[in-house]
Design a protein around this nucleic acid. Structure first.
Lengths: 220, 220
DNA sequence: CTTTGTGAAATCCTTCACAGCG
DNA sequence: CGCTGTGAAGGATTTCACAAAG
C-alpha cells in the first residue's frame, strides 16, 4: 500500500515511533516487532502495523522491522531530512526556555531568530543569539527563509503577530499563547496550552473521585 | 440529555470553550450563540451544540447561551471549583518557566512544591518558593495532598520519577519529557512534547511543498 | 425568524482476526 | 512457528439537516 494520504492520526503518532526507534537504535537493537514498538510507544500493535503500512515500510514476517531502516523511512516521511528555519516570537520565561531547548537542532530545526517587542531586551544575548525587535519580523522571515514560527507572546498580541507572520510567508505555527488563532487554511497551527492540559487532567481527577479508573493520553 | 459519560473528544474541547467564554465575559458579552462560540474556538457550531448538550447546559432557542451560566457550568464539569495541589519536578529551564506561569493559580491549580535532584539548587528561591530535594517527593506528595504532578525532568529520569509519584498517590501527570510513560490505568497522563509538535508541522510543510492546502490543529 | 437540541448519515479511527510469508 | 499486512467489524466523532422552541 505504497504512498500518500497518510491519516492525521497516523501522522500524530509517527514522532512517537521515531522517539522509540531512536532509543532502540541507541541501545543497539537491530530489529523490532510491531508489538515491541507498540509497547515502547504506548499504543496497540495493530495500529503500529497499520500506520507503518501507510508509509509502505515493509517488515519481515516472523522477524519484525529493521530499526535503522524505519528511522530513515519515518524521518523521510516527516520531512526531517531537510532542515527548517524557525523563529521564536516572544522571549519571556517560556520563550527563553524554548530557546534553550536542545531538541530543536537535533532534528533539523534551526533557530534563526529570537524576536521580542520589549525594547529593553533588544541586543541582549540568549543561547548565543541576539534578541531582535519584532518590528523586523517581516524582513527576518523573508531574508532567512523562515517557514515555522513559535509563538510565545502574551495572549493579547498573539493574533496580530500571527497575522504578520502569515503575511510574511510562514506556513507552520506552534502556538503557546492561550487563544485560538484564526489563520488561513494553508497554514498549519498546533496549539500547546498548559492550562488546557491541566483542566483535562482535572476533569479525570474529578471522575476518579467517584468512579473507577478512566485515563487519558494526548498528542505529545 | 443530562449527565455523565462525556466523550473524550468533548472533554478536550471544554477548556477551549472556557477560554473563549471568559474572554467574552470580560468584554461584557451576556449571551453567545453556538456559532459565536464555534468561531471563537475554531470548531464547527454543530459540535459546540452537541458538546454542550452532553453537560445538559440549556441554551435559549433563538438567542443562545448565557455566558456567565456557561462559564459556571463548564468550570463545574471540569472540576475547577475545588483547587488542586500541584508539584513540579525538574527545575531546569522549562521547570522554571512553568513555575513562573501565572495560568496555574488562575484556575485553582496551586503549586505546592518545586523539586529537583540537583543538590546545588536546593534551598534557592523561585517565584517565592524554595526548591526542595526530589528525595522528599513521597513526604511532600502525602503531606501536601498533591494530586497532580508536572514532570519536567530529563527524559532518562522521567519514568522512575513517574513511578515514585504514582506510588506516592498522584493520579494526574503532565509530562514534558520526551518519552512514553508507562503508568497504571487509574493515572491520567497528558504529554506535551515540543519536538513531536514540530515534527507534525514539518510533515504538513512537506506536503504543502507539492499539493495545495492541508492544515492541522491540536489539543492545546 | 433565529437558534437550539438531536436523530440519522457520513466519516474517521481502532480493533479483531486471520491468511500468508519467511 | 512468529509476525506482518490487511480485509472486515466495531466504535467513536463529526457533520448534516430539521423539527421544535422562544
Amino acid at each position: 500500500m505504497r504512498h500518500r494520504r497518510i491519516p492525521e492520526a497516523t501522522v500524530a503518532r509517527l514522532p512517537l515511533y521515531l522517539q522509540a526507534l531512536v532509543t532502540a537504535s541507541d541501545q543497539g537493537t537491530e530489529t523490532i516487532s510491531s508489538g515491541g514498538l507498540a509497547r515502547a510507544s504506548g499504543v496497540n500493535s495493530a495500529i503500529v502495523r497499520k500506520d507503518l503500512s501507510h508509509l509502505g515500510a515493509f517488515g519481515t514476517r516472523g522477524v519484525g522491522y529493521r530499526v535503522d531502516e524505519l528511522v530513515d523511512e519515518v524521518s523521510e516521511v516527516l520531512g526531517l531530512s531537510q532542515d527548517r528555519a524557525v523563529v521564536i516570537v516572544g522571549i519571556g520565561n517560556l520563550g527563553r526556555a524554548l530557546a534553550a531547548y536542545d531538541g530543536f537542532d537535533r532534528r533539523g530545526f534551526r533557530i534563526v531568530g529570537l524576536l521580542d517587542a520589549d525594547r529593553s531586551k533588544h541586543g541582549s544575548e540568549l543561547e548565543g543569539r541576539v534578541i531582535e525587535p519584532v518590528d523586523q519580523l517581516e524582513q527576518i522571515v523573508r531574508e532567512r527563509s523562515v517557514t515555522i514560527a513559535v509563538l510565545a507572546t502574551p495572549a493579547e498580541h498573539a493574533q496580530q503577530v500571527a497575522d504578520r507572520l502569515v503575511a510574511a510567508g510562514i506556513t507552520g505555527l506552534l502556538n503557546f499563547a492561550p487563544v485560538h488563532l484564526d489563520c488561513p487554511d494553508h497554514v498549519s497551527v498546533r496549539n500547546v496550552d498548559l492550562s488546557t492540559e491541566l483542566q483535562i487532567l482535572s476533569f479525570y481527577e474529578q471522575l476518579a473521585a467517584a468512579e473507577p479508573s478512566p485515563g487519558a493520553a494526548s498528542t505529545g
